[in-house]
Computed example of a mutant assay.
Amino acid sequence: MPAVTTKFNEDDTLDMEMFEVNIKAQLDAGVSGIILGGTLGKASTLTGEEKQQLIRETVKMVAGAVPVIINIAEQTTKAAIEAARVAKECGARGLMILPPMRYKANDYETVTYVKAIANSTDLPIMIYNNPVDYGIEVTLDMFEEMLECKNIEAVKESTRDISNITRIKARFGDRLKVFTGVDTLGMESILMGADGWVAGLVCAFPAETCTIYELSKVGKMAEALEIYRWFLPILELDINPQLAQNIKMAEVATGIGTEHVRAPRLPLIGAERERVAKIISDGLAKRPNLPAYKGLSMA
Results as ranks from 00 to 15, higher is better:
Leu232Gln: 12
Lys294Gln: 11
Met221Ile: 15
Met96Trp: 01
Arg265Lys: 10
Thr58Asn: 07
Leu46Ala: 05
Val4Ser: 10
Asn71His: 13
Gly38Ile: 05
Pro206Arg: 02
Val276Trp: 03
Val276Asp: 00
Ala277Thr: 08
Asn71Met: 08
Lys24Pro: 09
Pro267Val: 11
Ala207Phe: 04
Thr180Glu: 00
Leu95Met: 09
Val178Glu: 01
Ile162Phe: 04
Asn106Glu: 12
Ile212Leu: 01
Ala292Gln: 09
Gly33Cys: 09
Lys60Glu: 13
Ala105Arg: 09
Lys104Leu: 15
Thr180Asp: 11
Met142Phe: 13
Ala84Pro: 06
Arg56Tyr: 12
Ile34Glu: 05
Thr47Ser: 13
Lys24Thr: 15
Arg273Met: 06
Ala63Trp: 01
Tyr228Ile: 05
Ala105Ser: 15
Asp282Thr: 08
Thr45Ala: 08
Asp11Glu: 12
Lys51Thr: 14
Pro124Gln: 02
Ala84Ser: 12
Pro288Leu: 08
Met192Glu: 13
Phe231Thr: 02
Gly186Tyr: 08
Gly200Tyr: 03
Ile136Tyr: 09
Tyr228Ala: 08
Ala299Thr: 14
Glu17Cys: 10
Ile55Gln: 06
Glu274Ala: 15
Asn164Trp: 10
Gly135Trp: 11
Lys286Gln: 12
Ala194Ser: 09
Ile69Ala: 03
Leu95Asp: 06
Val178Trp: 01
Leu268Tyr: 07
Thr159Ser: 11
Asn119Met: 13
Val31Ala: 04
Thr209Glu: 07
Pro288Gly: 04
Gly173Asp: 09
Gly270His: 06
Val31Tyr: 01
Ile162Ser: 05
Leu40Thr: 10
Lys294Trp: 00
Lys169Gly: 11
Arg273Gln: 11
Arg262Phe: 10
Thr13Trp: 00
Val198Thr: 14
Thr166Pro: 03
Val155Glu: 00
Tyr134Ser: 10
Lys217Asp: 03
Ala250Gly: 06
Ala271Phe: 04
Asp161Ala: 14
Glu145Asp: 14
Met126Arg: 11
Ala80Tyr: 01
Glu109Pro: 04
Ile81Lys: 02
Gln26Val: 04
Pro124Val: 10
Ile69Cys: 02
Met298Phe: 15
Ala87Tyr: 00
Ser281Ala: 14
Ile165Val: 06
Met126Lys: 09
Val21Thr: 13
Pro100Ser: 03
Ile136Trp: 01
Val68Gln: 03
Ala116Leu: 13
Glu49Thr: 07
Ala204Phe: 04
Ser281Lys: 14
Val21Ser: 05
Asp282Gln: 10
Ile117Tyr: 07
Gly295Ser: 02
Gly173Ala: 13
Phe143Thr: 03
Leu36Tyr: 06
Ile81Gly: 06
Glu274Met: 12
Lys42Arg: 12
Gly64Ile: 07
Tyr128Gln: 07
Cys210Pro: 00
Ile190Phe: 05
Ile239His: 08
Thr39Pro: 02
Met298Glu: 14
Val21Gly: 00
Ser297Leu: 15
Val114Ala: 04
Met298Ser: 09
Ile97Phe: 05
Asn119Gln: 15
Val114Cys: 05
Asp122His: 14
Ala43His: 01
Ala170Lys: 09
Thr211Phe: 04
Thr13Val: 10
Leu266Lys: 06
Leu235Ser: 15
Glu274Cys: 09
Ile162Cys: 00
Ala271Gln: 11
